[in-house]
Design a protein around this nucleic acid. Structure first.
Lengths: 167, 167
DNA sequence: CAGAATTTTCAAATACTTTTGAAAACAAAA
DNA sequence: TTTTGTTTTCAAAAGTATTTGAAAATTCTG
């Protein structure tokens, strides 16, 4: 049986690794991991010392996580320090991530695809171009719709019989 | 109506942008975009001059795309040069990408989650840890299964009535 | 086999991203 | 208002990733 500290380190490290594979700042993901598994909200100083990072870095990444809607601030009466805690409902976490990435990445791409789907088609090169663009557009629109559906769906999605049917 | 060269530039640029948001080398995605829309297979020299990149860079990224199974080599009898073309069936492209990322990223994460789900649980801290790890594990396993299903499904998936039901 | 065409490699250069830490800004308390 | 604790900012430093280009390896041809 693994001990708690070891498990915690592994989790933080591996969450960070996965995130950086997906184009997300590694430290941001490590802060997220730390707050996810914390029993209580943590202060910036606790994040700094647990992850051994600077104040500026901690502040910046906590802020980014709040922008993503994955972490929230808790103010305690009679205390000056700010406490931070992560949203722990995995369904909400995934939904937030999908929403953010969809908006920042998929939607701009869709816009470009729409623009360029009006390319004049009058030679073999443009023929090939137009076919591919049309296909990608069809696919991306479908993906977009499916993501919208996922986001609207509620947490019971995980056990949605429709999904087992897909198997 | 947009002209072809302009559309082509926009497409390559925006495909590269999107890829780099997702942790994929921008140039690799641009080479992919270029080959996707090409009417005919291209040589390394053509890729170099179209994208204005060095020989080493072109070679390296073409190779990576072949490793991903997104680009193939064509040898022409009587010619020394190698020609490269991209898989254009979007369903196959997406399938390849899912397969690769699943194997390189999701699966290692699942392995870590399994390891750390044996953490001894005997204090409030470990309680919180175990709960989150259990939830993430449940979720990732479901995602893994769903991706397996997607990969096994055939191209008609796009118009699968099950997916419209999700809306 | 030698020579020519082509691809591959990789150390060094460049470009890009993240982190630091000290100073500035801010906010509560005295 | 002044002091003190806390958060924010941001220029410079450190760290990563990508790109170059010339040399080495490979492969075809005569």
């Amino acid at each position: 049986m693994m001990n708690f500290q070891e498990g915690k380190q592994k989790f933080i490290e591996s969450w960070g690794k996965m995130a950086s594979d997906w184009g997300i700042n590694r430290t941001m993901a490590q802060v997220h991991a730390l707050l996810l598994i914390a029993a209580e909200p943590l202060t910036a100083d606790e994040v700094m010392s647990e992850l051994d990072i600077s104040r500026g870095n901690a502040n910046m990444n906590i802020r980014a996580l709040m922008d993503w809607g994955l972490v929230h601030k808790q103010l305690r009466t009679g205390e000056r320090k700010e406490y931070f805690y992560a949203e722990k409902d995995m369904w909400v976490v995934v939904r937030q991530i999908i929403l953010n990435r969809k908006k920042r990445e998929l939607e701009p791409m869709l816009k470009v695809l729409e623009e360029i789907s009006s390319v004049e088609n009058n030679c073999p090169e443009s023929e090939s171009f137009c076919t591919v663009v049309r296909d990608i557009r069809k696919f991306s629109n479908k993906a977009n719709q499916t993501l919208d559906a996922l986001v609207k769906a509620d947490a019971t999605w995980l056990s949605n019989p429709l999904f087992s049917l897909l198997r």
